[in-house]
Simulated scan of single mutants.
Amino acid sequence: MLIYLTEYLTQYVSGFAVFNYITMRAIMAILTALLISFFIGPAVIRWLIQLKVGQAVRLDGPQTHLVKHGTPTMGGVMILFSVAMAILLWGNLTNHYLLIVTLSMMGFGVIGFVDDYKKVVYKDPNGMRSRTKYFWQSLVGLVTAYSLFAFASLPAETQLLIPYMKDTFITLGAWSIVLSYFVIVGTSNAVNLTDGLDGLAIMPTVMISGALGVFAYLSGHVYFASYLNIPYLPGVGELTIFCAALAGAGLGFLWFNAHPAQVFMGDVGSLAIGAALGTVAVAVKQELVFFIMGGVFVAETLSVILQVGSFKLRKGKRIFLMAPLHHHFEQKGWHESQVIVRFWVVTIILVLIGLASLKLR
């Protein structure tokens, strides 16, 4: 909303013109989301404690996790609120990319909220039925994927860009809807699986969101896109504001989620931010680069798939000591903080490799 106010004030005070630049609004968005998270965090935690929405801990998991039983969950509402407010203040609300990504995040957030509510309020350990949960994820994912396809006006928006190779892409046409669906829903569930240790999921989210913001800004700038030989997508630069807001809200949440965590994000947070990251990756046409940068999320998901498959096909034999992957390393003797920080380091490396695709061809 403030973008419209600053545009009006520019005719009286030229200095307000600085707020018309995406870079300036991105800085303001990250600071706004960060400060809102800091401000509302203690109140949200107290509210969750009063509601007695404590996290249940797996009894078959690492014994060190038993002390976490009862820690308030559903803290993801803090992230969603902070992002939404930052976008309302600094985003261009007429931009279809920004609206689609924001609504996708909120849609998955509602699904996660219902799932969490069933678990912690109705004391149903299973929460929403898996089939029901997947149905609603698929519905929101398909609507998001189709919306991006429907608004596509350039051939590049329905192509799969091959990173590290010059002028190499696969034309998908309407099949881009299928790809987008799997990226969005898959990432949503991948972040959900990763969110098992204090700060494990949120810091990679911050780093990947920042990198996707770089891709969004460059792809939305005709000169930078031409120089770097990446698809020029008019209007996609506005997603820089979203990525900045998500990074700021994530850092604010990490303040309370760092070990030992005062609050967990719950499905309301993990499903929503996973879908948001996937949707941005699709919008900026960096699906494969996103696959690389989100390597930790990918590894966590594959560990669960392989573990379940091995257990069923090999008559109870397991590949990992425990899945998801972070629990495997805990069972091998790694301290929780070691697992978290090392996974962060891996993500930093993967994000840098992803950003290198801008020049390495």
Rank of each mutant, 00 (worst) to 15 (best):
residue 89 L to A: 07
residue 85 M to A: 15
residue 94 T to G: 03
residue 77 V to W: 02
residue 44 V to R: 04
residue 57 V to H: 03
residue 72 P to I: 02
residue 33 A to H: 07
residue 25 R to H: 14
residue 69 H to G: 10
residue 44 V to Q: 01
residue 69 H to C: 12
residue 19 F to C: 05
residue 70 G to W: 11
residue 72 P to L: 00
residue 80 L to K: 03
residue 61 G to S: 02
residue 50 Q to N: 15
residue 92 N to L: 03
residue 77 V to M: 15
residue 45 I to L: 10
residue 85 M to P: 07
residue 57 V to S: 02
residue 61 G to N: 03
residue 90 W to T: 02
residue 83 V to P: 01
residue 12 Y to Q: 05
residue 58 R to D: 03
residue 37 S to R: 07
residue 39 F to Q: 06
residue 60 D to R: 08
residue 23 T to F: 11
residue 93 L to V: 09
residue 54 G to M: 09
residue 84 A to L: 15
residue 11 Q to V: 14
residue 26 A to D: 04
residue 78 M to F: 06
residue 93 L to A: 14
residue 62 P to Q: 14
residue 26 A to R: 04
residue 67 V to I: 14
residue 92 N to V: 01
residue 90 W to P: 00
residue 71 T to S: 12
residue 73 T to I: 08
residue 79 I to R: 03
residue 58 R to N: 04
residue 28 M to H: 09
residue 47 W to P: 00
residue 61 G to M: 10
residue 22 I to W: 10
residue 33 A to V: 03
residue 91 G to R: 11
residue 44 V to P: 05
residue 60 D to P: 01
residue 92 N to Y: 05
residue 82 S to L: 06
residue 13 V to S: 08
residue 17 A to C: 00
residue 23 T to L: 13
residue 82 S to P: 05
residue 47 W to R: 06
residue 55 Q to C: 06
residue 68 K to V: 06
residue 15 G to W: 12
residue 65 H to A: 01
residue 89 L to F: 06
residue 52 K to P: 01
residue 24 M to N: 12
residue 33 A to F: 15
residue 31 L to Y: 05
residue 75 G to L: 12
residue 47 W to M: 15
residue 65 H to K: 11
residue 36 I to L: 15
residue 19 F to M: 14
residue 15 G to T: 01
residue 26 A to N: 08
residue 39 F to L: 15
residue 60 D to E: 15
residue 92 N to C: 04
residue 79 I to M: 15
residue 76 G to V: 03
residue 40 I to M: 11
residue 24 M to S: 08
residue 83 V to D: 08
residue 24 M to E: 08
residue 46 R to P: 05
residue 76 G to K: 01
residue 82 S to V: 09
residue 20 N to P: 00
residue 51 L to W: 08
residue 85 M to K: 01
residue 52 K to E: 15
residue 60 D to F: 11
residue 59 L to H: 02
residue 70 G to P: 02
residue 91 G to P: 10
residue 61 G to Q: 01
residue 87 I to S: 05
residue 17 A to S: 05
residue 64 T to S: 15
residue 86 A to M: 11
residue 40 I to L: 11
residue 48 L to Y: 02
residue 29 A to L: 07
residue 37 S to A: 14
residue 53 V to A: 12
residue 31 L to P: 02
residue 87 I to Y: 04
residue 56 A to G: 07
residue 27 I to N: 01
residue 55 Q to A: 12
residue 80 L to V: 00
residue 89 L to S: 10
residue 47 W to V: 03
residue 67 V to T: 06
residue 34 L to E: 05
residue 10 T to M: 05
residue 56 A to I: 04
residue 74 M to I: 09
residue 46 R to T: 12
residue 69 H to V: 07
residue 61 G to K: 07
residue 62 P to M: 09
residue 51 L to Y: 00
residue 90 W to M: 00
residue 14 S to N: 13
residue 85 M to H: 03
residue 19 F to Q: 03
residue 41 G to N: 03
residue 18 V to N: 09
residue 86 A to K: 04
residue 42 P to W: 11
residue 72 P to H: 00
residue 20 N to W: 02
residue 85 M to T: 13
residue 13 V to W: 11
residue 74 M to V: 11
residue 22 I to K: 14
residue 40 I to A: 01
residue 17 A to F: 12
residue 13 V to K: 02
residue 67 V to A: 15
residue 12 Y to K: 03
residue 37 S to Q: 06
residue 69 H to W: 04
